[in-house]
């Protein structure tokens, strides 16, 4: 067991956790932040993507203990003062989600793309999202939403 302190969505939290606790487990099972989803057991699907110190990561690939002292943003922390992030707005406007399960990871991953690249091409968006699997949308409206968000940010 060890004590881990991190800042999640702007709030400082400390918990005594087992050493083997994954960040995804800490978020979902200990902090009840169930917006971060688990879609696989091989770090392939990307449903669990969150931001750690501003960078997108698959939260199932990190031990919570390893990010002691970091700042974490999850899908629950993306909207500010009740107003959705432009990426969330764009997904809504262009029907970039259907069942909603891959959506949190997809949105968090896309937000990170635009941090690094203001106006990505369609191919750059598709390449970046290669680590996020969606079974519903055929990706077309997701790609369109990322472009739309880029034009608004």
């Amino acid at each position: 067991m060890q004590k881990v302190s991190i800042e999640i969505n702007g709030k400082k939290v400390s918990r005594e956790i087992e050493d083997r606790t994954l960040l995804s487990t800490l978020l979902r099972d200990i902090l009840s932040l169930t917006g971060t989803h688990i879609g696989c057991d091989t770090s392939q699907c990307g449903a669990c993507v969150v931001h750690v110190d501003g960078k997108s990561v698959k939260s199932c690939t990190l031990f919570a203990a390893d990010i002691h002292g970091s700042k974490v943003t999850t899908i629950e922390g993306l909207a500010r003062n009740g107003k959705m992030h432009p990426m969330q707005e764009a997904f809504k406007k262009l029907h970039g989600l259907q069942c909603g399960f891959c959506t949190p990871g997809m949105v968090m991953s896309a937000v990170d793309l635009l941090k690094n690249k203001k106006n990505p091409s369609e191919q750059e968006i598709r390449d970046w999202l290669e680590g996020n699997i969606c079974r519903c949308t055929g990706y077309q409206n997701i790609v369109a939403a990322v472009k739309e968000a880029a034009s608004k940010m």
Binding site: R28, Q88, T103
Partner: peptide, 14 residues
């Protein structure tokens, strides 16, 4: 959409 986009969906595992 809003619930799914803000992490408030409620699936069985949640």
């Amino acid at each position: 959409d809003k619930k799914f986009l803000t992490g408030k969906g409620r699936y069985t595992a949640d």
